[in-house]
Write a protein that binds this DNA or RNA. Structure first.
Lengths: 329, 329
DNA sequence: ACTATTTTCGTAAACGCTTACGAAAACATT
DNA sequence: AATGTTTTCGTAAGCGTTTACGAAAATAGT
């Protein structure tokens, strides 16, 4: 019940500590048979290696920094969750994780940085590039960098096609901040899919909700005031979808009977039980976090840069329905 | 230039490694003279002990968990900053910090928990209490627990008195979620100060903004629709104040000429340059984080529980002004 | 079969620190 | 001065890993 060490595992598995360590780290020089035996003992006894000892033995102290999210602080639920997940994976691999500023990238002891939401024109990006430290960005980047992102194009396509499948033709898009490229990609995809379906996407059908509930709420109010007609709104984030839901409700529209709404992210918000269950595009957060950690580990071992695009999928819930005849006033 | 170890220090100071360690940790058994000599060598060479080695040698691995914030995920900017600060202090003291769930409190290796925003009736609270692990809550608690919180009473008093000093008499309050006690205390203080000044605080003067921008925006819209008259609104958070600002702006009121607005928190939001500079109550975040860490360290050494109330101060910016004669329609 | 290779694995030395333990030095007490 | 106390400090044994290094075992080559 006290601390389980590598020696205990070695004893139980009838091998030496060196072998256990090699098995654990997937190092070369262990037969598949003994590796499996060791691993099974590990999982039976529930052994988990001491990160400190591991770190110490590995030599050079290494902390991996994660920068604070900046695109908009309101998308923070996303960030906190991500932070947690990355941390989990990295600590498991024996690294220390700290929240740092991009300017700390050169600090001694900092092995690398994980930076959610930087974009090419971001001033912080230059800061990162100018030092040699490896960094992985969470967001789409040119191929010469290492990054992981969800497949925004396919995600938004899924949302729009879902709406089209329900018979909607007047679909407006609620976009996010114009700075972030995530919003940009989602917007472009909306336009492309609509155009491919021979549907109109005039400028007034693109509402800017700035990735916030309030922004989306006001955008809808303005659109309604201008007598914009639509039967569905495809949002670039759940957060904004909630704002849309509120605005529609206040204006007397019923979702999904009068108007359908789709979100994007599907983050596990812990306080939003009051909302209508949202049809949305699910992001595999767990996978994103783990992949980011994985990429960092790869970089640290000198791997070449690469980008990873993760799949999304549509989650159909209660905020969308088939279009009906007389919907708008 | 490579890693500076305790041996280097020992050599330079002409003592043994044991002595250096003792000097560094303020342990008993080192003369003041040698301690100072060692410490000066340390600072000259810029030596900083390896946390992993320290941790390993100290024996029992100890991670300190911080739970995810739940009161409302929108107050997340607050949380992220806090997390960062606590981490900074704790890591400096040789502890590992992880984001954990309250139910992980019993996990082996978890020395203690720092829990922002739990309240007495919180189900998570029971979970914490039932295990013996020490925990410090960020938020006001009965004296038998260890906690740190900003002086909400004095803070809200400062805000209201500032408004009173400007001649306002019709002051409404924008409150947060009814669950959290923080909102409760701020609300009560508003009522008390107003009553003490012989001013009215009827129920319709208390608007519920649910700690979100959107919530506050809608609350103001509703109040305006009901022809509620007021010359100032004192908000329980900056977040809500921004919503109020937006609602007032949309309704054609000028802040601060027509109506004054105060916030509460003064968090460094990195994306809100577009807002009018807010008169608000400043929370010493750095101090809160460090104090939380400090209290945890104390607890770990078996200190008795205690609560700490940190001072707030009023920051006067552009959202408040003297009341004028003809303000409301 | 016997040697040359290759693969698997055990041994033991780090990694940088803390902390008993006991020796030496300092100070008190007679 | 001689002895007893207390304080200061050096020595060395860990803490739980990783990883050369080389021995042993398995496989290949003749």
């Amino acid at each position: 019940m006290s601390k389980l060490t590598i020696h205990d595992i070695a004893k139980h598995a009838g091998v030496s500590t060196g072998t256990v360590s090699r098995a654990l780290n997937g190092r070369f020089g262990v037969s598949a048979a003994t590796r499996d035996r060791v691993l099974s003992v590990v999982s039976v006894l529930g052994y988990v290696p001491d990160p400190d000892a591991r770190q110490l033995a590995k030599g050079s102290r290494t902390v991996i920094g994660i920068t604070r999210f900046s695109e908009t602080s309101l998308r923070n639920a996303y960030y906190t969750l991500l932070l947690d997940l990355i941390q989990e994976a990295l600590v498991g691999a024996g690294y220390a994780v700290r929240i740092l500023d991009t300017k700390d990238v050169a600090r001694p002891g900092v092995a690398g940085m994980i930076v959610p939401g930087v974009y090419l024109a971001d001033p912080r990006f230059e800061e990162l590039r100018s030092h040699q430290r490896p960094f992985v960005v969470i967001g789409e980047m040119p191929p010469e960098y290492t990054w992981v992102e969800v497949d925004n194009r396919n995600g938004m396509r899924q949302a729009i096609e879902h709406l089209l499948g329900l018979g909607h033709t007047r679909i407006v898009h609620m976009t996010g901040s114009p700075i972030g490229q995530t919003a940009q990609i989602r917007l472009e995809t909306y336009q492309n899919v609509m155009t491919d379906a021979n549907l109109e996407t005039s400028d007034d059908m693109i509402l800017d909700g700035r990735f916030t509930q309030l922004g989306a709420y006001r955008a809808i109010q303005r659109a309604l005031a201008q007598k914009l007609e639509f039967t569905a709104v495809a949002c670039a984030s759940d957060e904004m979808a909630f704002g849309v839901l509120a605005a529609l409700d206040d204006a007397g529209f019923k979702v999904p009977n009068d108007i359908s709404v789709t979100g994007f992210d599907d983050l596990p918000l812990d306080d939003d039980h009051e909302h209508l269950p949202l049809t949305t595009i699910h992001q595999p957060m767990r996978l994103i976090g783990h992949t980011a950690a994985q990429l960092m580990l790869e970089m640290l071992e000198g791997a070449a840069p690469r980008g990873v695009l993760l799949p999304t999928n549509l989650v159909t819930r209660a905020s969308t329905a088939e279009v009906r005849e007389t919907q708008m006033a």
